[in-house]
Design a protein around this nucleic acid. Structure first.
Lengths: 188, 188
DNA sequence: GAAAACAGTTCGGTGACCGAACTCTTCTGC
DNA sequence: GCAGAAGAGTTCGGTCACCGAACTGTTTTC
């Protein structure tokens, strides 16, 4: 990354951010990480990103300290990728870009997913504050829930899409939670 | 843009945003637009972006309704590019990414530029609220001002960099203001 | 212990990006 | 007006990133 393909000469903070999160797919990978996606195959299956690109992005983000790579919990202890505090700090940016897309390029039938304040189930306003209590909602108290525009569950949905059919708290593992063996797959 | 190089299959709002503002250089171009940069040559000179890429990005953003292209004011009435309301709505995203870069990749000597609330000259907090009065500051009341880390003015600075050596209100034209003839160049 | 699933890697083709040079229009000075 | 200069893109060849598909080696399950 460093020299040939950086934003040469740009000394501003935004350029430094873009060096890390400005590449193709990177913000979508991070969004999935907020959703609780943690494993290589889950990212690949949900995003449809070329696997070589995913490998590259995960390495870049890990090197940058945005993600941390470590052994998973439970018996199946494959490597998992999780957001570090530095990665979690990107939430306002992810939320702002999502809100902008929602406002100016709305999906037919309404938003596919909505963000709610975990306590009172009220939606967040564009600034990330709870529309009910007015508080600035910290990431870990945000629920991602199906919105009116979400397509009904299909049998060929990837596991991440299927899991997101019900409300889920950000940053909590989505699929690979089971402390002993896998128990997340509904019924094969 | 539409089919071959989109984020195929991704139906979320973030992916729709990234289709428009997720390409290389795009957010830096928009940052400059917030600073008041309006002409092709100013963007090119300040960013160092290849001119062909700049042409492409300006066209894409104009088509998307993020920028509007129109004749400039005054005698020199070359075309200028300005943010539309849809473009202005990207401010929270630009600010969040800038704040993240500032926090996790600080420049030596401190930030090169800071954002202030125009009324009381107090800096904004990471959420875009005034640290003095607590109000959420609308874009047009934000001042971009030189920070402690900014290099001293050099004779070979491009005009945009030179103009940003003093505080400037976002969205107001930076260089091409003069209603009759050019009056912005200090001393040739 | 065999088979399946998983996490990457490799590979050839294609498109994007890069820097430099070039063209055409618009403006300025006389 | 007219010549020269500057601004706004366009063109071009080389390089790099991205894409999809197939492949490899490890881990997990049966």
């Amino acid at each position: 990354m460093t020299l040939p393909r950086d934003y040469r000469g740009q000394t501003c903070a935004l350029a430094r951010s873009m060096e890390i999160v400005g590449e193709r797919w990177t913000l979508l990978i991070l969004r999935d990480a907020f959703y609780g996606v943690r494993r290589f195959g889950e990212f690949a299956g949900h995003l449809g990103v070329p696997r070589a690109v995913l490998t590259d992005r995960l390495a870049t983000l890990t090197e940058a300290g945005v993600l941390a790579r470590g052994p998973g919990t439970g018996t199946g202890r494959r490597e998992v990728y999780g957001l570090t505090p530095k990665g979690v700090a990107l939430w306002p940016a992810v939320r702002a870009l999502t809100a902008w897309g929602e406002e100016f390029h709305p999906a037919e039938g309404g938003p596919r997913r909505v963000f709610l304040h975990a306590g009172d189930e009220a939606p967040l306003d564009p600034d990330g504050r709870c529309t009910a209590c007015g508080a600035a909602v910290p990431v870990q108290d945000v629920l991602v829930a199906p919105g009116p525009g979400l397509a009904p569950p299909a049998p060929d949905d990837d596991p991440v899409t299927a899991a997101l059919a019900r409300p889920h708290r950000l940053l909590t593992p989505l699929l690979t939670t089971a402390p002993s063996g896998r128990s997340t797959k509904g019924s094969p």
